[in-house]
């Protein structure tokens, strides 16, 4: 069966592939920005590319559980890599915004407080900081059930990320709405009743 083949292939792929493969776009995009490949306004373009990659990786991470539950495809071992690389691109996104875009530290703070789309994005980022800090095997072992509960913070974080994308565009634009819709669907899937257990209890 296709699912079994997929699962057995996935078991053989080392997880460092995720880190190695997904870190390549960072220097590549920076180089493109430096050499004109990102157009005549490379700062905004680079900021957006990094931010979008982060959102896409977060969404990929949210796909892991439903894929396992509804399709039987097990990619659980890659989820930490997806999450950490998403966090890495969020840091790149923030750094470009801070250093290259806004440039003035006082204004960075004013922007976070005054501009709702930045407040929302920054809140999403802050929610992910404890998740990145507790991504080690040791933390998982030591925290037990509390680790799982803490990592539910990814749900509001991704939702805030999708909202940030919708809010920063002018007018109602299709692309960010598609991303926000995708996030909403992936979160709603988690509310689907677990049939087997319900049946067992009945």
């Amino acid at each position: 069966m296709l699912v079994d083949r997929l699962n057995s292939t996935a078991r053989r792929v080392p997880t460092w592939i995720v880190y190695a493969g997904l870190s390549l776009p960072a220097p590549w995009l920076f180089w493109q920005g430096l050499t004109g490949g990102l157009g005549v306004e490379p700062i905004k373009a680079l900021e957006h590319e990094y931010g979008l990659l982060a959102l896409q990786l977060l969404i990929a991470g949210l796909c892991v559980t439903p894929l396992r539950r509804f399709a039987g495809v097990n990619l659980l071992r890659f989820r930490r890599g997806l999450g950490l690389m998403a966090f890495f691109y969020l840091c790149c996104h923030l750094l470009v915004w801070l250093v290259l875009d806004v440039q003035i530290l006082a204004q960075v703070w004013a922007d976070i407080l005054k501009r709702p789309y930045i407040t929302v994005g920054m809140a999403g980022f802050l929610l992910l900081v404890p998740l990145a800090l507790t991504s080690t095997d040791r933390a998982i072992r030591r925290m037990g059930m509390r680790w799982r509960q803490l990592h539910w913070l990814v749900y509001p974080a991704v939702l805030l990320g999708g909202l940030h994308f919708v809010m920063l565009r002018k007018g109602w634009q299709l692309e960010p709405l598609v991303y926000l819709g995708l996030v909403a669907i992936l979160l709603l899937l988690r509310l689907a009743p677990r049939r087997k257990r319900v049946a067992a209890h009945a």
């Binding site: 430096l34 005549v40 290259l100 204004q107 004013a110 922007d111 501009r115 709702p116």
Partner: peptide
């Protein structure tokens, strides 16, 4: 007078590259 989403105090000239100053 700021736009609610952007400060209007400064601007960036198009074409000045990745390290363009405001």
């Amino acid at each position: 007078v700021d736009h609610p989403r952007w400060s209007q105090a400064s601007e960036r000239r198009i074409g000045a590259g990745l390290f363009a100053r405001r």
